[in-house]
Design a protein around this nucleic acid. Structure first.
Lengths: 244, 244
DNA sequence: AGAAACCTTGCCGTTGCGTCAAGGTCAAGC
DNA sequence: GCTTGACCTTGACGCAACGGCAAGGTTTCT
C-alpha cells in the first residue's frame, strides 16, 4: 500500500501518518524504487491501534509508551490516569457551563457580570452623573472582580451611598476638578467625607489597606491635583483607622 | 500600577498581560520615564473583564469582539454559541470516558481493543501457531479496526475457522513457505481452500472486494511466492464470486 | 555595595497536525 | 508524445495562549 491507501484504510490523513513517522511513533517503512513508502498489513494494524488510542484522548507520547511495552499493565495505568484527567476536564466544563447559564439567564444591560452584592449596591445607588461617583463605581467593580473584597464591604458602602448627603459631597469633589492643590476647600471637604464614612466601613477594610501595592497611586492618578489631595487624605484615614 | 501589580490584582501573569497587549486585546498604556508600563484603574477593570471571559472559555479574538461592541447582544450570542460548543465537548468527553470504562473493565491480555464479534471469533478459533493463521488473524484485526467489515463477516469466518479441516489447510499453506512459485501443490491447495469457504462468505464480501485498493498487493507481499500464488487465486475467487 | 525583586524586548517551545510550496511519478486519454 | 490529474516526496510555516529563558536595566532593601 502507498501512504494514501493505508491512511484511507485506517481513517487517518496522509499528513497524520507522516507525522507519526516524524515523531517516531511508527517506524518508516521500506520504500519502493520510486521513493514511495510501502506499507504492509502490520503497519495498518499498528496505525489502527494508534488511531483508537489517540481517539481516546491519549497524547502521542503516551501512545508511544503504551505501544512500546505492550505489557497491558502500563496501558491500564495510563488509561486510569487519563480517565482521571478527563473527569477533571468534564467537571471544569460543567462548571463553565453552569456559570454560562447564570449569565445567560440574567437580564441583559449590565456592564458585565458582577457579584450579587455589587449588583444590589449599584441598583441602590442614586442616579448621578458625577465623575467622582463614576470613579467610585469603577473602583468597586474592580474590587469586586478581583475577589479580594468581602460582600460586607459592599453592603456598608451601599448604606453610605444611599445617604442623601453624599450626593452633595460628590458635587463638592467634582467642583475641585480645576482647582489648584492648595485650594482652601480641600480640608473641610476631606473632613466632611471622613465624617460621613461609618465606623464599620473603616473596620471592614482588609489589613493591607489597599488591595495591592501600587493601586493607591493609580487611584490618585485618576484625579485632578486638588481632588487627589482630598482622596489621598481619605485613603490615609482608611489606612490608619482601618487596622493600623 | 506596574505590570506585576495589576497582574496580581486581577489574577493574571505579567506574561498574559503583555500577551494581551501584543495581540491587541488591550491597548498599551502610558509608560513611566523608566520605560515601565503605567496602568490605571480602568485597565484593571478591563483586564478583569478579559479574565472572566477567558475563564468562561472564550478565545481571545472572541473576547475582543465582545469587548468591542459592548452592546450586550453580541455577548449573549457568543455565549450561546460557546455553550453549545461546550456541550459538544462535554458529550465527547463522556463518550471517551465511557469507552475508557469499557476498556478498563475488560480482562487484560488481549492484543488490543476489538469488537465483540471479532473477540468471539478469536476466542473460538483453535489454538495454532501456524504463521498463515496468524496472518489471517492480523488481517481480521485490521478489517475490524477499519470498521469497514460487517459483524456478519466475522460470524461467517468463525464457522469457517472452527472447521477442523481448516487446520490442515493452514498446514499445507505453511508448507509452501520455501517452495517455488510453480510448485505442483499450489493448484490443489487453492481448490481445496475455495471449496472450504461457505457460499455465504463469498456473498458477504463488500462490493469492491478488498477494503481499499492496494491492500490486496500488500497482503500478497506478506507471503512467500508459492503461498502468494495460492492466496492470490483465492482472492481472485472472492472478487469474482463476491459481487462480480 | 551587593543582592533581591522588579521591569524591558525578543525569541523559542508547546500539541497535532493543516496547509502551502516546489517539485517527482505514474496511469490514462488525445 | 504530450498533457492532465491524482498520486507521492521533503521542508517549513501556522495555529492558541501563553511559559520560559536570555540578557539586560531599575528600584529598593540591607
Amino acid at each position: 500500500m502507498r501512504i494514501g491507501e493505508i491512511a484511507a484504510l485506517v481513517g487517518l490523513t496522509t499528513r497524520a501518518v507522516r507525522h507519526y513517522h516524524h515523531v517516531g511513533l511508527l517506524p518508516e517503512p521500506e520504500r519502493r524504487p520510486n521513493g514511495y513508502r510501502a506499507y504492509g498489513v502490520r503497519d495498518a494494524v499498528l496505525l489502527a491501534r494508534v488511531r483508537r488510542l489517540t481517539e481516546l484522548g491519549l497524547g502521542l507520547d503516551e501512545v508511544r509508551d503504551v505501544l512500546a511495552d505492550d505489557a497491558g499493565r502500563e496501558l491500564a495505568e495510563v488509561l486510569e490516569e487519563l480517565d482521571a484527567d478527563l473527569a477533571r476536564q468534564e467537571a471544569a466544563i460543567r462548571e463553565r457551563r453552569y456559570r454560562l447559564g447564570v449569565l445567560l439567564a440574567e437580564p441583559p444591560g449590565v456592564t458585565g457580570p458582577v457579584s450579587p452584592a455589587l449588583a444590589a449596591l449599584l441598583a441602590q445607588a442614586p442616579r448621578t452623573d458625577s465623575p467622582s461617583a463614576a470613579k467610585d463605581r469603577e473602583y468597586l467593580t474592580l474590587v469586586d472582580a478581583a475577589g479580594t473584597g468581602s460582600q460586607e464591604i459592599f453592603a456598608l458602602f451601599g448604606t453610605l451611598i444611599a445617604d442623601p448627603a453624599v450626593a452633595g459631597l460628590y458635587e463638592r469633589l467634582d467642583a475641585l476638578a480645576e482647582a489648584p492643590a492648595d485650594d482652601p476647600r480641600i480640608a473641610p471637604l476631606a473632613a466632611d467625607l471622613m465624617a460621613a464614612v461609618p465606623e464599620e466601613l473603616f473596620a471592614a477594610i482588609p489589613e493591607d489597606g489597599v488591595v495591592v501595592t501600587g493601586l493607591k497611586e493609580a487611584l490618585l492618578a485618576e484625579y485632578a491635583p486638588a481632588q487627589a489631595e482630598v482622596v489621598g487624605r481619605l485613603m490615609e484615614a482608611f489606612v490608619e483607622r482601618g487596622r493600623g
